[in-house]
Design a protein around this nucleic acid. Structure first.
Lengths: 242, 242
DNA sequence: CGGGATCTTGAGGATGCTCAACGCTAGTGG
DNA sequence: CCACTAGCGTTGAGCATCCTCAAGATCCCG
């Protein structure tokens, strides 16, 4: 489970919150040594937001960048008539605002309570020249984001509803594993609506597809939003059409 | 039209091809000063490939990076059963391989004859520490790519066929304008198939949609793959559902 | 001209959407 | 303590958009 005692510890070392950061080994800060980390820490502010609150809004001036230290964030874009495309979900350790543009390219909303480490964008940009490790790290992160985005293009453009849902579950599973959580009973904390808007489907189709996968024995729906993936190999094949 | 006399000029200054580059003010090299450009130039090789040839293949070790100096390149990913998702089109001045990963995340194929400026990836990475301008520039480019990718996610996940086609035409138009070409009779050099695979549609749907737009007077299909966009405002509204 | 590739058009059908009702769960207030 | 409600998830019936399959038209290059 996610470390939630961070604020308490932090209060005792206000000048160096990073040293006590619960996710410091996973976030981009890990590219920094102690003095560099101190400079970053001076820019950082811990903030907490309740569920359903908006963290950033598409089109706004990009004043802040964030590390997610606890909770889950939904990133999305809207069309004028309200259609929504979820572009990603962020978990503890993920970075919000990699694209260092003047305005945010998408909105972000907390799913449940979220804790964030907030940095002023111009401050980070000012550090970039001084901290080459940081710049290199950001470039690597942006590259990885691009690869993820391209996988998602393939999913949205060419996969069937079933393939989309299976790909999504496998993706969640892989990311959970990377965070040191279990790969198989995977936690699915977002609503069917959010999943649908991520996969380019409707709530009903997501629900129906999960039911179908369950009756076929490909997955098991457990209590507390957990989904068991009994045969990864089979699911991987299914996610690509076999 | 694109400057195609580059090779001739280059032969007279083999040690500094960059100085004669037809797209030098548009590519990432523009971030460099003269001595820096010289170091880049020492790594560069001009190559030409005929139409339909494969430039890179998804999954291969990423040995080379490229600048497109003339022609058009199609980027795509494949599913095992042959379904194809085009992730982008590159024009003169665009960079191929921004994601500095060990392996290519997608394949690239020449649409018509293409000229490329080729760099060894490890060579570029070796320069990154020395040339901070270059690293900054790559980060900016990656950021812009990410924003583009997110727009494409919205398109693929939530737009109708008609909205997709109109968005595509506007996008081509905007990029042509950025290259200094005309915005309105826009050149559409790729096949209906490639467009369909880019928009998550079939050839037939693309064709039918264009025909419909034509009969409604929203566009005009001209000779030589040119399409006239008489009312940009109207098209912009259409691309978002109004 | 001829012929292959590309594009267009048509008819029928399937996937996933819309609209609607119902069930479940958790939180709330009497 | 329990009824009530709101939100979310599931299920069903009918339908629209886009796909599939097929045939014809057009273009381009030799």
């Amino acid at each position: 489970m996610v470390e939630l005692t961070l604020p308490k510890r932090r209060d005792t070392v206000p000048t160096s919150p990073c040293a006590a950061c619960a996710v410091q080994d996973r976030v981009f800060c890990s590219a920094l040594d102690a003095p560099e980390l101190e400079r970053m820490g001076n820019l950082a502010h811990q903030i907490s937001v309740p569920g359903r609150s908006t963290i950033i809004e598409e089109g706004e001036a990009a004043e802040w960048l964030f590390n997610v230290t606890a909770g889950i964030v939904k990133l999305y874009k809207l069309l004028p008539d309200g259609r929504q495309q979820v572009t990603g979900f962020l978990f503890a350790g993920d970075f919000l605002g990699i694209a260092l543009n003047e305005t945010y390219a998408y909105s972000a909303e907390a799913i449940g309570a979220v804790q964030l480490c907030r940095f002023p964008r111009v401050g980070i940009e000012g550090l970039l020249g001084d901290l080459p490790h940081l710049e290199k790290r950001l470039l690597t992160m942006a590259s990885n984001e691009l690869v993820q985005a391209q996988d998602q293009l393939l999913l949205l453009g060419r996969k069937t509803a079933r393939e989309k849902v299976v790909s999504f579950l496998l993706n969640l599973s892989r990311r959970a594993e990377n965070r040191g959580e279990s790969a198989s009973p995977v936690n699915v904390p977002m609503s069917r609506d959010a999943i649908a808007d991520y996969l380019g489907l409707t709530t009903e189709t997501v629900s129906r597809t999960l039911t179908k996968l369950k009756t076929e024995g490909c997955i098991r729906l457990l209590a507390g939003n957990q989904i068991d993936l009994p045969d990864m190999e089979k699911l991987i094949d299914m996610s690509e059409g076999d």
